[in-house]
Design a protein around this nucleic acid. Sequence first.
DNA 1: GCCGTCCCGTCATCAAACTGTCAGGTTGGT
DNA 2: ACCAACCTGACAGTTTGATGACGGGACGGC
Lengths: 222, 222
Amino acid sequence: MRILLAEDDEGLRSVVERGLRESGYVVDAVPDGDQAAAYLRLYDYSAVVLDWRMPKRSGLEVLIELRAGRMPTPVLMLTARDTTSDRVAGLDAGADDYLVKPFDFPELLARIRALLRRPPDAQQPRLVCGDLVFDPTTRTVTVGTTTISLTTTELSILELLLRRAPAAVGRRSIAVQVWDEEADAVGSNTIDVHLARLRAKLAGAQSRIETVRGIGYRIVAT
Amino acid sequence: MRILLAEDDEGLRSVVERGLRESGYVVDAVPDGDQAAAYLRLYDYSAVVLDWRMPKRSGLEVLIELRAGRMPTPVLMLTARDTTSDRVAGLDAGADDYLVKPFDFPELLARIRALLRRPPDAQQPRLVCGDLVFDPTTRTVTVGTTTISLTTTELSILELLLRRAPAAVGRRSIAVQVWDEEADAVGSNTIDVHLARLRAKLAGAQSRIETVRGIGYRIVAT
DNA sequence: GCCGTCCCGTCATCAAACTGTCAGGTTGGT
DNA sequence: ACCAACCTGACAGTTTGATGACGGGACGGC
């Protein structure tokens, strides 16, 4: 169990570092964001504790870079102020938990244990199928490096397919999810048309929307 | 992405409902626990936001009932007071997250997005015979690594054979399973033909459909 | 307010898949 | 050898899905 601790306040850092060591973890402690990023590129950590405010690079920047590299490593953010906008930004960037200073060390320890307990795939925030990536936080779809622009309806259908994958999704389910109340009034082939448009836009991707005759659709990697 | 919102305070409910809608979710908003339970039985939600205190049935009761039905739908509880005994009860009952009132709407949004990021951990049993595997959730049949595409009728028959295996299944049973009401009107050799087609598609598998002369069919591993 | 653009739902048409029936061959029991 | 049960390839009707085109409505820029 190797843990990276990034915290600029030297006093706090040494206290936490010693505490974690005594709890049996291997700890790398760094004082700023640049070093944190450097260590993250170098080693594979079981968990990361990131201070929000740090010299050179903020914890948030480090976190975003980490997630951009598709690393699912659990991240615990430390924040000085407890404003909701901070929390939101942190959670959206892919933080798994946050702790407001000042905190009791036992609580930090408990939260780290909680993060390490979580199943590994519970931390993957993106929906992936082949080289097709859907990021729920930004609601964008990328194939490889290129971003694809989808309409609201298309996005809604694609998201449903991805969440249910690899199961087939019934036309009825699609209607209910996308058109809500008016699900019954959906024209006979409206869904077909949207699926055709989606397929056209996803033409270059290494994933395909299969038709399950009489049932609905399913998305699969190719 | 369809979300159920159960909250008795009308002001809060409408605010949250509108906010969620603007974020692109399809929202069903209900004012009490009974209606929440009713909607949960009716629709398949991506996430549920449950107020703790509600008329007729508390959020906790709704949650317990939901989990009793083995539904893995992520649940976010709203609680008025932040007492640890409340938290424990809620989390024990299977809530995935909780939020203490009063809260800022952006934070609620962020937490819902976090919940939706989690992969559903539902795991249904699969039917196996030899190297032939039928997965009911995806409606797919695989032999070894290759996937076989079956029509609805074929799948229906195969499923019946697998469920009854290693017993033989009468023609009458097959007729009832596949054609239900019109079971009597099934032509004399319609079933034969479908079995022939099934056998053809299952040719490479290490399982075989045997004929029990005068009775029906049985599937066995070879 | 006017215009262009984008998006959506419907229609008509086309293509493909699925199903039931039949005819003729095969098998197995007696 | 005979008969009933069963197998299988072919075929045509029907259902289901795919796709290009069209018109209306929403939205934003001017």
